[in-house]
Amino acid sequence: AEDARALLGGLARAEARVKAAAGEAQPLRIGFVSAALSAAVPDLLRGLSAGGLPTPQLQEMTTPQQLEALESGALDVGLLHPPARRLEGFEVRPLGRDPFWAALPSDHRLARRRALRFAEIAREPFILFPKAQGPALRETIKALAKDAGATLGVVAEAARAHSQLSLVAGGLGVGLVTRTTAAQLTIRGVTVVPLKDTAERLFVELHLLAEPQTVRRLSAFVPRSRRGSSGTGP
């Protein structure tokens, strides 16, 4: 079944290349995880517009959904999280990492600190994204709490950063937000404090996945971020 799906996907992509060679400008079909909304998707839209290319068809999808759609030929480009299984005929382009910082109620005893160690918030009640949305990342947070001698306590879950921060503002607990999101999204009653000891373990990473010629075509529009930079967010 997988071989048949890959074959059909290859035929669909070949048909798209034939149309492009014939001068039929086809809009790119782009899937993206929510993390790509902070920078990668806006950069891509501006670049395609400046290049006079058709407005792409955009769809928010999980990483597994994008992999399936890319393989079947239903998508041209994926903006997704690693680790992702390798797809034959596709090229991966890392777009960078975005570290997580602590989001605290503004009246929290630690909110005035310039930076924190994760151990200082490990025993706090947490408001996080659903586990199904990022199982590997949730396991990392759980491991960080364990390393600090604590058991991760999650009192609420919300899929969107805005929803998570709103619950933090209400004093329900503390949260985690990427540096990019913290710079773009301000919620009254929430103070964001950098975490100084988790940059190598607690981050969001984004990859662009497409056929090699498409990756080269889009490279100028989505700059590669340096490791630890704020190029992407959840």
Rank of each mutant, 00 (worst) to 15 (best):
D3E: 12
D3N: 09
D3V: 14
A4L: 14
R5E: 13
R5Q: 13
L8W: 05
R13S: 07
R13H: 13
R13E: 07
A14V: 09
V18C: 05
K19Q: 13
P27N: 03
L28E: 03
R29Y: 09
I30D: 00
I30N: 00
V33S: 09
A40F: 07
L44C: 02
L45P: 04
L45K: 09
A50W: 04
G51E: 08
G51P: 01
E60I: 11
E60S: 08
T63W: 00
E68G: 10
L70S: 05
A74V: 06
A74D: 13
D76G: 01
L79F: 08
L79S: 02
H81W: 09
P83R: 04
R86F: 09
E91R: 15
V92H: 00
V92T: 08
R93G: 10
P94M: 01
G96H: 10
D98E: 04
F100I: 01
W101G: 01
A103S: 14
A103M: 07
S106F: 00
D107L: 00
R109D: 10
R109Q: 12
L110I: 10
A115I: 04
F118L: 02
F118G: 02
P125I: 15
P125G: 02
P125A: 03
L128T: 10
F129H: 13
K131I: 11
K131G: 07
Q133Y: 11
A136R: 08
L137K: 04
R138V: 14
E139N: 07
E139D: 14
E139A: 11
I141H: 05
K142C: 06
L144R: 02
D147V: 04
G149L: 03
A150N: 00
V154R: 01
A156C: 01
A161M: 10
A161E: 13
Q164K: 08
L165V: 06
L167M: 09
G171L: 02
G173S: 05
G175W: 03
G175Q: 06
L176Q: 09
L176I: 10
A182D: 01
R188W: 00
R188H: 11
G189K: 00
T191N: 13
V192N: 05
A199C: 05
L202K: 02
V204K: 09
L206Q: 11
L206E: 09
H207D: 13
H207M: 06
H207F: 12
H207S: 08
L208S: 14
E211S: 11
Q213P: 12
V215D: 08
R217F: 10
A220G: 13
A220S: 15
V222R: 01
S229Q: 06
G231S: 09
T232N: 15
T232W: 06
